[in-house]
């Protein structure tokens, strides 16, 4: 399992804490963070992601509220084991990506069948390309 905490590119217009939450969701959806896994402390996260400790704190609070992570007593926080929450994250990320795609392709007014064919072809190409480079051992994504 690899997490590249220090290579997250933050944009300057979205709240940093929400970008951190999103990063966690992506890591969960792609299996890089797994159910029940212990996550870094707030202080460690701040140092690793090079963010303000208050922002790390706020991100963790948000993730606790969304039930993404659980913290019991003084033990370190963990990714939730709740399957329903984990499935929600996945569909949420897919939904957002599809919304963005539809939003930009809509302007071109392409017939739906043609569009779906294109998506299928492109998606397969991309998956093949990626699994090829994974075998090469150079892709860390």
């Amino acid at each position: 399992m690899e997490n590249e905490w220090d290579s997250v590119a933050f944009n300057s217009r979205d709240p940093v804490y929400l970008q951190v939450v999103r990063y966690f969701k992506e890591q969960i959806a792609t299996g890089k963070l797994q159910a029940g896994q212990v996550i870094p402390s707030r202080r460690e996260l701040g140092a690793m992601m090079k963010i303000n400790p208050n922002t790390a704190q706020k991100a963790y609070k948000e993730m606790e509220e969304q039930q993404l992570i659980v913290t019991e007593g003084n033990s370190p926080s963990r990714i939730t084991g709740d399957g329903a929450v984990l499935r929600t994250i996945r569909s949420e990320l897919i939904g957002e990506a599809v919304d963005a795609f539809v939003g930009s392709v809509r302007k071109v007014k392409v017939p739906i069948d043609e569009l779906l064919d294109l998506v299928r072809t492109k998606y397969m190409e991309e998956m093949n390309r990626q699994s090829g480079s994974d075998e090469g051992g150079t892709n860390h994504d």
Binding site: R43, G46, N52
Partner: peptide
């Protein structure tokens, strides 16, 4: 972003904020 400043109040001046903007409250 370190524990060196944890719990303290930091006030600093700058006119180059590009690298710092995500770090300030």
């Amino acid at each position: 972003s370190s524990e060196l400043i944890e719990g303290r109040g930091v006030l600093f001046t700058t006119h180059e904020i590009a690298e710092m903007e995500r770090l300030m409250d």
